[in-house]
């Protein structure tokens, strides 16, 4: 990263850190901002797969939900350390992602999407039917996690800053990743998988690696969720949630990292506002999506052309 762009990144971070100081930022808006940035970060991690590698995952909700359940299960049983929760989430999501990515990356295109979807549905069904984890009601009313013993992340402000740290670290990691040699290979795989293979790259290994990274980032995001909402339910893993993640990436702009963050935040805020006025808010969101696909095919932050139209490069 150049020095100038690092400064710009720092400026955005500073703006987000200062956001709670604005007079209209009530507790509710902080919670809303938490959701907006959390789902923005998750959309960004999904962008590594969709935008950079050309792999459309229809199962990211499972990574998110597993992260959330990992935390909720520990919190419910009295393990309130944030680090233990995050560690457990990384372990659980990592093992699951290893399994999914091993099988899914062996296939291309629609088959990759279908395999991720099928695995995610299995996880969803498992949690929905397992009464030990609350069945379809999930785990509710968990206590807040503690940063260190005695310091609980229990206010909207503390949760907001937790998500800022997560977003900043996740963004830095993704940025480093896509500008590295590894990132270039991912783009090469997206552009022409056979050619990348002929050049001597072990394509499946690269795909598995990026799947794992994307899944773990999503899982860590999920692990932060119960701290804010006090629950984890199977609904978090429903395939429609995976679909929403993809929509967030598309709204923001594929292969841009920053775009999906904006896409995620935009989606959450739009959903929140529109659903307060009309019951059929998904129609409005659908129309917005149609508008974006038709008139802004490169997303809100569309510097690059859409996937499949050739010529475009994702990495800077």
């Amino acid at each position: 990263m150049s020095r100038v762009s690092s400064w710009r990144g720092a400026l955005v971070l500073a703006a987000l850190v200062a956001l709670p100081a604005l007079p209209f930022m009530s507790k509710f808006y902080l919670l809303l901002a938490f959701d907006a940035l959390l789902f923005g970060a998750i959309a960004m991690s999904l962008d590594l797969l969709i935008g950079y590698t050309g792999l459309v995952s229809f199962g990211h909700a499972a990574f998110f939900g597993l992260g959330a359940y990992s935390t909720a299960i520990l919190l419910e049983r009295g393990v309130v350390s944030l680090w233990a929760c995050l560690g457990f989430a990384v372990l659980v999501v990592g093992l699951y992602a290893l399994l999914v990515s091993y099988f899914a990356t062996a296939r291309r295109g629609i088959y990759f999407a279908l395999l991720t979807l099928v695995f995610a549905e299995v996880v969803y069904t498992f949690f929905r039917y397992t009464q030990t984890f609350g069945g379809s009601d999930g785990i509710q009313g968990v206590p807040p996690a503690q940063l260190v013993p005695g310091v609980a992340i229990d206010t909207p402000l503390a949760n907001y800053y937790a998500v800022i740290v997560y977003l900043a670290l996740a963004y830095a990691l993704c940025r480093v990743l896509v500008t590295s040699h590894f990132g270039k290979v991912l783009v090469a795989i997206r552009e022409n998988e056979d050619r990348a293979r002929f050049l001597g790259y072990n394509v499946q290994r690269y795909k598995m690696a990026v799947c794992m990274i994307s899944a773990l980032l999503t899982g860590v995001g999920g692990a932060l969720y119960p701290g804010r909402s006090a629950f984890a339910t199977p609904d978090l893993m429903l395939w429609t949630v995976s679909g929403e993640f993809i929509i967030m990436v598309m709204i923001g702009g594929l292969g841009t990292l920053g775009g999906p963050i904006i896409g995620g935040a935009f989606f959450v805020l739009l959903q929140e506002q529109v659903s307060s006025y009309v019951d059929w808010y998904f129609m409005v969101i659908g129309l917005v999506l149609v508008f974006i696909v038709l008139f802004m095919p490169r997303g809100l932050l569309g510097f690059r052309r859409m996937l499949g139209f050739g010529q475009w490069r994702a990495t800077a």
Partner: peptide, 20 residues
Amino acid sequence: MKRLTWLAPLLAVALAVALA
């Protein structure tokens, strides 16, 4: 990293519109 310049105003506008 050029795209980052858009992040701050866009986020601010999105939040401001939503919160008005």
